[in-house]
């Protein structure tokens, strides 16, 4: 199972993501720099979290226009599994690979803590090792995780089962519409999520609730 991690200046969760993929996938992921125009044949492409380009203009806006993102879009169109976490989610939205936008947290505060995540759809290639309605623990750390989409888009993604993760009832940390924490595209091969499953995959993290996500994403791709 081969994976690749996209690297952009200002990301800071890349090492955690590489460690998680190495641990769960058995081999270290390839790394692809922002100016690369081609991505090698891999089963899973991951855009990690951080603050690409210092969040200038809008979170993920500059990163989404870098050459490597054209290559990510081409791979996604061919059905390759792609996932973006935190800033990676923002980048996928800015690149138009997922619907909607992420705005400043309603509290205006940077939120860094653990949340409860509910599996809203367990039939995606990312959530298939969880049960629908299962509630897992997951860390979050972001300032702009307030998911927004216009009414028609929201109705569509809800109707099509594109909401993969929701914040547990009453724990929405950022004002996201419908408590949305993570969504997939219409085809189901691209996931974006604000929480950091890569930071809860081994006992030393204090829990392993995030593991099943990587096992599913890597396993399905094999």
């Amino acid at each position: 199972m081969k994976s690749a991690v996209i690297l952009l200046p200002g990301l800071n969760r890349d090492r955690d993501m590489i460690a998680a993929l190495t641990k769960i996938g058995g081999t270290a992921p390839l790394t692809v720099w922002q100016t690369d125009t081609e991505i090698p044949d891999v089963d899973l492409i991951v855009i990690p979290g951080g603050f690409s380009y210092g969040d200038y203009l809008r979170c993920g806006a500059i990163a989404a226009r870098m050459p490597v993102m054209r290559a990510v879009a081409e791979k996604a169109a061919k059905g390759v599994t792609v996932m973006g976490v935190c800033n990676g989610f923002q980048i996928l939205l800015e690149a138009g690979l997922l619907p909607g936008a992420l705005m400043r947290n309603a509290s205006l505060k940077f939120v860094c803590r653990e949340v409860k995540l509910e599996i809203a759809n367990a039939e995606t290639r990312f959530t298939s090792r969880y049960e629908k309605g299962q509630v897992i623990r997951c860390p979050i750390a972001h300032h702009d995780g307030n998911y927004f989409a216009d009414e028609a888009t929201l109705a569509r993604i809800e109707g099509e089962g594109q909401v993969a993760f929701r914040y547990g009832e009453g724990t929405n940390p950022n004002g996201s519409l419908n408590d949305i924490a993570g969504i997939v595209n219409a085809e189901g091969n691209v996931l974006g999520m604000m929480p950091h499953p890569e930071n809860l995959i081994e006992d030393a993290h204090g829990g392993t609730d995030g593991r099943a996500l990587f096992e599913a994403a890597l396993g399905r791709a094999a």
């Binding site: 203009l57 226009r65 619907p99 936008a101 705005m103 927004f148 989409a149 216009d150």
Partner: peptide, 9 residues
């Protein structure tokens, strides 16, 4: 359309 504005919002 391509960069300065995010026309979603």
């Amino acid at each position: 359309d391509k960069l300065l504005a995010n026309t979603v919002i």
